[in-house]
Design a binder for these strands. Structure first.
Length: 456
RNA sequence: GUAGGUAUAGCUCAGUUGGUUAGAGCAUCGGUUUGUGGUACCGAGGGUCGUCGGUUCGAGCCCGAUUACUUACCCCA
């Protein structure tokens, strides 16, 4: 059989030991913060029923979903007319009933509805799992990537929003980031803006356009708005809102002024104010909290607060986002349950930490000590010591005898093992083992017990 | 879906107007050293030059197609 050049699908990656150590540093840090704030972990299946996912992310999202072909002779049962007419949407529905999850929030909503009788509300859960998007990969963008989500359902309190800011601040600071911005906005403010210019139906077009302000500038946004059916008068009214400047307090004041005819817009202002008030007397470690009216985010299920986090230390898309969604579970038949959540983009955080050289040295050390023997007698002699080391919770291993010392030393060196123990005939006779510090190169003769004490 | 770029050893890449047997560094393995790595020296293995076709006496190099990867846009973490 002809051998196939080994490769992984576009936009996916292998994670080698050194990378896994660094990734786990990120995951462990974020998880520990989630737990500290009272969130409990769950997992959901990689695949969901297609009907669970479709329509939750907009048309674009439906396109970017990886669908799974039905098992068996799926074409036999396919919609013949749809196939004939090259109608992909209809045909897909008849040959695929499952899809890989696109994010963690919708599966969570499904989970909450399905398990509502077992859950005590407010329910705070976190989830760290991969998600899949059939996007064109590029820098910082993959087809399989990990999200770290924390959501709370069943609590309308804005205290949750305030705590999200604290979680972002604590977790990202712990990871070593020193300068990042948590942008906050409120969907009700966006609705209010649309209401003020009597374009309530065009809120999606409005948000998509003004979301691009920092990328394409005011003129770009105006051009985009014109293309999306807004007229010059609308744009004149929008300009002062889009170009809002000053401190958060000043921005809020200007917004209230601009939105005074829109009750929903004013409610959005109140909500943001409440979050700021909660945080007024709490100190943030490294985060800047900024009201950003141009922050819209693509997901159309958000109804209240919207978050996005950007690092100011390197050029990178957002490394986290979230918001409040009032009726996500309604789609699955459970009405009146509000939820809010945030997400960390672990893969992008990885790239940022790598670029800033922020991973701690210790992440690439796994084994603490390697026992080097010359023959099987040495193995038998040293195995009890190895067991003692492990009983003391010291990561340790013994290289199977037979290889040259040079080879074994190289092994220790390549694996970044800080200490080695040499066991030869001298050592076995005297009971004094050669204990070597691989970094300094120094070695000394010690009893097994002394070595154990040194490593503890 | 739109527009560019790239494709030569396991990895990163050289390769002269188109000219004998396609190179280097790193990595791997072996030796100098049958008890000492990170750091010396010597050596070895490893290639259908992405694929198919064309031009030419002759193609890694020029032309066409195709595939894969990649960057940016749309959109998004």
């Amino acid at each position: 059989m002809a051998s196939i050049k080994p490769s992984v699908p576009k936009g996916t990656r292998d994670f080698s030991p050194a990378e896994m150590a660094k990734r786990n540093f990120i995951f462990d840090t974020i998880k520990s913060v989630f737990k500290k704030y009272g969130y409990q972990q769950i997992e959901t299946p990689s695949m969901e029923n297609l009907s669970t996912l479709t329509g939750k992310y907009g048309d674009e999202g439906d396109k970017l979903m990886f669908k799974i072909l039905n098992s068996g002779d799926y074409l036999a049962k396919a919609d013949a007319a749809a196939l004939e007419n090259r109608n992909s949407n209809k045909a897909t529905a008849s040959i695929s009933e499952k899809a890989l999850r696109y994010d963690l929030t919708v599966p969570f909503a499904r989970y909450v509805v399905q398990h509502q009788n077992e859950i005590t509300f407010p329910f705070k859960r976190f989830q760290v799992q991969p998600v899949w998007r059939a996007d064109r990969p590029q820098k910082g963008r993959y087809r399989e990537f990990f999200q770290c989500d924390a959501d709370v359902v069943g609590s309308p309190s804005l205290l949750n929003e305030a705590e999200f800011v604290m979680i972002y601040d604590e977790a990202l600071s712990k990871l070593g980031l020193q300068d990042f911005t948590i942008k906050i906005n409120n969907r009700k403010i966006l609705s209010g803006i649309a209401q003020v210019i009597n374009k309530h139906d065009s809120i999606v077009d409005l948000t998509i356009a003004i979301d691009k302000l920092d990328k394409i500038g005011l003129n770009g946004v105006i051009k985009e708005l014109l293309e999306r059916g807004f007229n010059d008068a609308d744009i004149e009214k929008l300009k002062p809102v889009i170009l809002l400047d000053g401190s958060n307090t000043e921005k809020l004041a200007s917004l209230r002024d601009a939105l005074q005819t829109s009750p929903i817009g004013l409610q959005g202002c109140d909500e943001i104010q409440t979050v700021f008030d909660y945080l007024a007397n709490c100190k943030l470690q490294s985060a800047n909290l900024e009201l950003d009216i141009t922050l819209a985010r693509g997901l159309n299920y958000y109804t209240g607060a919207i978050f996005e986090v950007k690092t100011n230390e390197v050029a990178m898309g957002s490394i986290g986002g979230g918001g409040r969604y009032d009726d996500l579970t309604g789609m699955f038949g459970l009405k009146g349950l509000t939820g809010a959540g945030i997400s960390f983009g672990a893969d992008r955080i990885y790239d940022v930490l790598e670029e800033l050289n922020l991973f701690p040295q210790s992440t690439d050390q796994s084994t603490q000590v390697l026992i080097i023997c010359f023959d099987t007698d040495g193995e038998r002699y040293a195995l009890p010591l190895l067991q003692n080391l492990r009983n003391s919770n010291i990561n340790s291993e013994m290289y199977p005898a037979g290889a040259k010392v040079k080879k074994q030393m190289e092994y220790a060196n390549n694996k970044n093992i800080p200490y080695t123990i040499l066991v030869g005939s001298d050592e076995m006779q005297t009971g004094l083992l050669t204990f070597k510090n691989m970094q300094s190169g120094e070695q000394e003769k010690l009893t097994a017990e002394d070595i154990l004490q040194k490593l503890k």
